[in-house]
Design a protein around this nucleic acid. Structure first.
Lengths: 152, 152
DNA sequence: ATAATGTCTATCTAACTAGTAGGGATAAGC
DNA sequence: GCTTATCCCTACTAGTTAGATAGACATTAT
């Protein structure tokens, strides 16, 4: 299960990305419409800002806007921000690689091999699907890079 | 990341399943060869016994043996035993289904839709691959039910 | 009887989750 | 230039979980 924090982050991002271009959304407004504890949400939005995903305006008529376009932000990126490494084993993580203490051989470790397959499958979705895909309900094609449907 | 408990369980199961038919393996032996805290491992093996996966013999020359064949035990089954539901959201779990408190519509929830895809992909591996597959290094074919290679 | 095993229950510590709290900084509007 | 609405930052807390550790009991081969 993903944390509430991560789930709130997705709810907030989808709300902000749905706004008309340039229109800011306040943390209070998001908290109210999505039943998220306000002060908790503020922390989350702050994290998203520090990560370069959101931008903010302070003061009256302030709020949050997207800093990067929604179709450049993958579910995996956001999830990693709040959950840390998504790999099921430390020896499968690219960014947080760590060998298991008692590991004899990574090349022959059955656990690593099978979980590697599961992780690959999951990553193929999470690292390719973006907030934009989710908002537009873009169809999901199995092959990354293969354009299933193209507008225009 | 999966818990140490789950990882230890897999190590132990693979070790026990690798034994010649009917030969028991003691918790002390497994703990020693895999650098697992002995008393911690005992709890894990007990859980596996209660789940009907292992059988045990007590007393001198006791130990653990497989109760069910290794090729009938999926990674998903073992993982669920120690980690609980694998679904990333409560509304995606079959066994532990729970609606999100603030859910407006599951059918249109973007978060549910995208995580559902990731979960499907991961489950397709975890619920189809067995301890036997792992031990024999069986090739992994994408389509379930399609026999990639068949002995005999 | 003894020793080696599995079985059961309780306890402990550190970290993490999910918040709550209380300000301080900034900007708009009167 | 005061007020108010917003974001920004840090600290704190209660409850849960992870990862063991400990000790006694039950069973069985020798």
């Amino acid at each position: 299960m993903i944390s509430n924090k991560a789930k709130y982050a997705f709810r907030a991002l989808l709300a902000i990305a749905s706004q008309p271009e340039g229109e800011a959304l306040t943390s209070a407004e998001i908290a109210r419409t999505h039943s998220i504890p306000h002060k908790f949400l503020e922390q989350i939005l702050l994290d998203l800002k520090k990560a370069g995903i959101l931008d903010s305006r302070r003061g009256k008529s302030g709020g949050y806007v997207m800093l990067r376009p929604a179709d450049t932000i993958s579910f995996g990126e956001v999830l990693r921000l709040f959950e840390g490494p998504l790999a099921p084993l430390p020896c499968l993580s690219r960014n947080a690689y760590r060998r298991c203490e008692d590991c004899v051989s990574e090349a022959t470790c059955e656990i690593r091999r099978e979980f590697g397959r599961a992780y690959d499958a999951s990553r193929q979705v999470l690292d390719s699907r973006t907030l934009g895909d989710a908002l537009h309900n873009n169809p999901y094609g199995v092959e990354p890079g293969h354009e299933v449907r193209r507008a225009g």
